[in-house]
Design a protein around this nucleic acid. Structure first.
Lengths: 173, 173
DNA sequence: ACTAAATACATTGATATCAATAGAAATGAG
DNA sequence: CTCATTTCTATTGATATCAATGTATTTAGT
């Protein structure tokens, strides 16, 4: 049937070398491994560290804004909280003001774990920073931010209409 | 016990704003959603597209180099191939020259699916490109590449000794 | 107050991701 | 040639990720 549909090898090389999505996935995986390895003695993964750190606020946040901040699906956040709850590092409580909402609360033990992980993060990040070309760190950060923000709103893509999640900003300055 | 270990909110904001790992995960998730949405009519995810495209070579590659190219664990590749095999888009064959190795072969139907996905990728990527500041695309690509390559080799990290995977380059120019 | 719509979160099912481990085959030292 | 080592892949278990869907609660329109 659909046989002999040949795609030129040059096209493969083009995609490999230019696809921003592929480059982002590669970099994300590599950085995840780097931080996972470093944080392992603290008992955290990079994602757990980011999540728990984002819960360290004066007022415990609900789930929606945290999911937006991390640019992840709300259902992913629900799942990601499970192991942290089991370990007693995070509590998911009802908000009496609006019983649909939850309050994500870092426990004392959760804060202690996070405090132990913090110097590892600093060290690892400083090391990473030092290896990037001068100013590369800031540039890269800014461009990644632009990409995340951009992909959130896709006027052309009907997907944002079909699935109006991922609204954007969160956690006020 | 380990109570009242307070981490200042300013530290949380610092991590949120500067952590390259977090920024990379955010951008990777956002881009994955963008391309997943776009490629959905073709029946592929962004990862499946990248993987299958990387198999479109004159000679079918073994698993190791493909995993390195995608900067993913070899076990992840094994798992990622399963659904593609079920759909009949990829065949995993033994290499008679070295029976430890596998040859990853794109089937005719696989090539057809990939060919249908290609214009979607082009369109989506052009749209993305257009929204980035001038030259931002190339700069971002280069920096992501630097990060992926860097995180692969971590002389300081004993992890690379304990777990000598992810060797680096693959798929010759 | 009543009801339709919107909001916030949870559940299910499928895939992605990696650490730890195991297995099979090839390689090298003697 | 033999055996220990190395290389290449698969399996298992845990978590991460999202689409589709469901449920409870609040809000808005009347």
């Amino acid at each position: 049937m659909s046989n002999s549909v040949e795609i030129p090898f040059s096209t493969t090389l083009l995609v490999r070398d230019t696809c921003l999505c592929l480059h982002a996935q590669r970099a994300a995986r590599a950085l995840a491994r780097l931080f996972d390895d470093a944080l392992r003695p603290a008992g955290l993964t990079n994602g757990q560290f980011s999540l728990m750190m984002s819960l360290n606020r004066p007022e415990p946040p609900p789930m929606g804004p945290v999911a937006s901040l991390l640019a992840m699906d709300q259902t992913t956040l629900t799942a990601a909280l499970k192991p942290l709850q089991r370990k007693g590092w995070v509590m998911v409580m009802e908000n009496p003001k609006d019983r649909r909402r939850r309050l994500l609360v870092l426990t004392g033990e959760g804060k202690a774990v996070l405090a132990r992980a913090l110097p590892i993060w600093k060290e690892t990040h400083a090391m990473l920073d030092g290896r990037l070309p001068d100013g590369g760190s800031a540039r890269l950060r800014q461009e990644l931010l632009a990409v995340s923000g951009m992909a959130v709103e896709t006027p052309k893509s009907a997907a944002s209409l079909r699935r109006p999640r991922h609204s954007g900003r969160a956690m006020g300055e």
